[in-house]
Design a protein around this nucleic acid. Structure first.
Length: 610
RNA sequence: GCGCCCGUAGCUCAGUGGAUAGAGCCCCCGCCUUCUAAGCGGGUUGUCGUUGGUUCGAAUCCAACCGGGCGCGCCA
């Protein structure tokens, strides 16, 4: 039943082939899509698709799971069948007859039950893909789909009252990866950390810091019972004492609480900055909540709510009419005691974000804050801003495990495992990879022992190893060789001058890559798989950016590494044949480039040797 | 009770309308005179939480239910 038709050379579109595929810019899937769309149009125009006047379904080129179904497949005939009142097979045949692709690019096209069109690639587009990778270099995979839109991503925003834990780490890594990703996808991204450096909690914190400071210097005073655990402050108090000695000890209580609160808070903030920098996270701005209060922004927002009739007084408190705006209940803006709530400050903060002119706002919170989302949305709406431009992403919990057993964390009992400890134990790259890999809405089980025990097998390491291996091969080709028989030093396989020449060729020529391929079908399959994977990067970036899933790229990097290893296993790169060596080094360098680009996005280092 | 998130192999997770549901870990068996064996190949593993619906076709969409997590009027 299946109709098989080899592509004959007279169906070539491109007269200038090889050397480029005019009219087929972009990735292979896109090139195929365009060819199929074109064929559908022509088939309709020729009246071969029954009563169809226009294409009722978008052409989607997918990757079949089974190798027998080719490298790519298209199910558009199935989607058109009912509208055309024809059998999918007949439609597929009519379309296939009109698909025009260069013979060097597609080896075979066929119609298969129940109406798929399957494609098996030849080498033309693979060579072109490699040339594109070399030409784009560090920019390969970068897209302009963000159209330079300004996006502000706010994340971590941990309270400056203690250590960061693994949950903060997750938000930090996710936010940072998302920022890198959106930049790569063509957005103008800024990253911001919101400091809760004022309010009720800072008063409590000041009392604790003051007590801890006095106690550290030998004074017999009680430590507040319901405050932050003394142990969790000890390290920071130690730093404060080392710097300030006992010069504040004689302050009156109220002054002392304020002063030590500030000193300790600032110590913690500095410490958080350093820790996050170690995780390869740099914020453009640390935005102080206190600064909002100080310049009256919070009061101004309350004023605006009052003027627009969006707030009211009840039970001694000031309320936002959030119910009117889709929330399940109204929200308190100012407590009966007179202090403003977190929501009031957050409304002022988000209003400021809007007024700074961003096209889009992303706020990343831990999932335990999800109850606040409707209130925040309602408040920005009440301020006349479009809540659709504010995207709140919630990151789920991280369960720390050790050998499959949950690590119970209790602040009170001081059994909290800090982010710093996890980083020290399993390494920054592993922490980044494991936290980057999953999607934010899923809880993570992070097993410390597993991450350590399998350090040779862990994905972060495996990907880095693949990158280092590419570097090693290139080094090998460019370094002088030692003759194993005579011990004499011989010139390198590739001279520096040659190499520079080759690098230019990689960017301008597709023929240069032709000698990569072996006739042996098994080896060819590995070569093709690797190149197909590399040329996927732009699509992966698009998809990851659109779904806010940088973790997708972490998994993609693993697949690239895996395909490289399989290729490496069956195929030598440096050979006696200069043309073959040149071609395959081009593939290795392209692979290295793709790995480096992806590792850059997920913030894992790309080592040259391991 | 209400709201949000989740439920896929022993474990950790992909896959969100297409053909026979995939990786890694774990376990077993092979492979180093040759560019990094920190590697590769092979083998085993599934009521896709349950039931019903929509569709030519459902892990994927809809409804109800079950199980887990989180949140729920002046904490942040």
């Amino acid at each position: 039943m299946d109709r098989k038709r080899p592509v004959s050379s007279d169906r070539r579109l491109s007269r200038s082939w090889p050397g480029g595929c005019p009219g087929f810019e972009g990735m292979i899937r896109f090139k195929l899509k365009a060819a199929v769309e074109n064929a559908v149009e022509k088939a309709i125009a020729a009246g071969q698709l029954g009563e169809l006047k226009d294409a009722p379904a978008a052409v989607v080129i997918e990757k079949p799971r089974l190798p027998e179904h080719g490298d790519f497949a298209c199910g558009v005939a199935l989607k058109m069948a009912s509208a055309a009142r024809m059998s999918p097979i007949k439609i597929a045949e009519a379309i296939l007859d009109r698909i025009e692709v260069p013979a060097r690019c597609v080896a075979r096209m066929e119609v298969a039950q129940p109406g798929f069109i399957n494609f098996r690639l030849s080498v033309g587009w693979l060579e072109e893909a490699l040339r594109e990778i070399h030409q784009a270099g560090a920019d390969f995979g970068r897209s302009s789909s963000g159209r330079g839109q300004r996006v502000l991503i706010e994340y971590v925003s941990a309270n400056p009252t203690g250590d960061l834990h693994i949950g903060h780490g997750r938000g930090a890594v996710y936010g940072s990866c998302l920022a890198n990703l959106l930049k790569f996808a063509g957005y103008a991204v800024e990253q911001e950390f919101y400091l809760n450096d004022t309010g009720e909690q800072m008063l409590t914190f000041g009392r604790c810091a003051w007590a801890a400071y006095q106690r550290r210097l030998g004074k017999r005073v009680d430590y507040p019972e319901d405050g932050y655990p003394e142990d969790s402050l000890a390290r920071f108090i130690e730093a404060v004492v080392a710097r300030e000695k006992d010069r504040w000890l004689s302050l009156p209580a109220e002054e002392g609480q304020r002063k030590l609160g500030e000193l300790t808070r600032d110590t913690i903030i500095e410490w958080q900055k350093e820790l996050l920098a170690r995780l390869h996270i740099e914020f453009d701005r640390w935005y102080s909540e206190l600064s909002l209060h100080e310049r009256g922004a919070v009061e101004a927002v309350l004023q605006r709510f009052a003027e627009s009739g969006m707030s009211y007084e009840a039970e001694g408190a000031l309320w936002l009419k959030a119910r009117q705006l889709g929330d399940e209940r109204d929200r308190v803006l100012r407590k009966s005691g007179g202090a403003t709530t977190y929501l009031a400050a957050d409304a002022a903060y988000h209003l400021d974000k809007y007024e700074r002119g961003y096209d889009h706002l992303i706020t990343i919170w831990g999932a335990d804050h999800h109850g606040q989302v409707p209130g925040l949305k309602a408040s920005v709406q009440a301020l006349g801003k479009d809540p659709a431009r504010l995207e709140v992403i919630l990151t789920q919990i991280v369960n720390l495990q050790r050998e499959g057993q949950m690590v119970r964390m209790s602040k009170r009992r001081g059994t909290v495992v800090t982010l710093a400890e996890v980083m020290d134990e399993v390494g920054v790259d592993a922490v980044r990879y494991y936290l980057a890999e999953s999607n934010p809405q899923n809880p993570i089980n992070f097993d410390l022992e597993l991450a350590k025990q399998t350090s040779r097998e862990n994905p972060a390491f495996y990907i880095q190893y693949a990158h280092a291996r590419c570097c090693a091969i290139l080094r090998r080709a460019l370094e002088p060789r030692v003759n194993s028989d005579t011990g004499a030093e011989e010139p390198p396989t590739v001279s520096q001058a040659e190499w520079r020449q080759w690098c230019d060729l990689y960017k301008s020529s597709t023929e240069v890559f032709a000698p990569i391929f072996e006739e042996d079908p098994e080896i060819f399959a590995h070569q093709k798989n690797l190149i197909m994977r590399l040329q996927d990067l732009p699509e992966e970036v698009e998809e990851a950016a659109a779904t806010r899933s940088p973790g997708r790229l972490a998994r993609y990097a693993f697949d690239v590494a895996n395909d490289l290893q399989k290729f490496y296993e069956v195929c030598r790169v440096i050979t006696a044949d200069a043309a073959v060596t040149r071609a395959r080094l081009g593939l290795i360098v392209a692979t290295r480039q793709v790995l480096a680009n992806v590792l850059g996005i997920i913030g894992v280092t790309a080592p040259e040797r391991m």
